[in-house]
């Protein structure tokens, strides 16, 4: 299966983020479905709960998970469908981590002040 240490970690992170995102997806569809109960329904009251800082920090983790899982998924596709992908899996994984971090900077810059109420 995976013989490099990096490959093993790439798999573990992909599996953990994937399971977390799938469970979040189920929750997210249920919470958005509350809009069907109309403007006077429970949607706004429920969202007040979501706007608390622990949930907003959790949403940053969801964003990080989507970015990592998506970029590492592209790495897996390159490994599976190109002749050179497996050879470059290790540098590509560091590329995935670097790009995830790079995308994280403007995301944190935008969202952290919103959470702190100084936006």
């Amino acid at each position: 299966m995976y013989r490099g240490r990096e490959g093993q970690w790439a798999f573990v992170f992909h599996r953990m983020s994937g399971v977390a995102l799938a469970l979040f997806l189920l929750l997210h569809v249920i919470d958005i479905s509350l809009v069907m109960l109309g403007p006077d329904g429970p949607f706004d009251a429920f969202l007040v709960f979501y706007h608390n800082w622990p949930f907003r920090v959790g949403l940053i983790a969801v964003i990080a998970g989507v970015v990592y899982h998506g970029l590492n998924g592209l790495r897996i596709i390159l490994m599976d469908f190109t002749s050179w992908g497996v050879r470059f899996q290790k540098p590509m994984w560091y590329g995935v981590l670097g790009l995830t971090t790079l995308i994280g900077i403007p995301v944190l810059w935008k969202i952290v002040p919103e959470i702190l109420g100084v936006a």
Binding site: I32, P39, G41, L47, P106, V107, E114, I115
Partner: peptide
Amino acid sequence: NMAFNAGEIDFAYV
């Protein structure tokens, strides 16, 4: 999350 402040999402937005 980026084009909008997710902390201000409400019924009208959705």
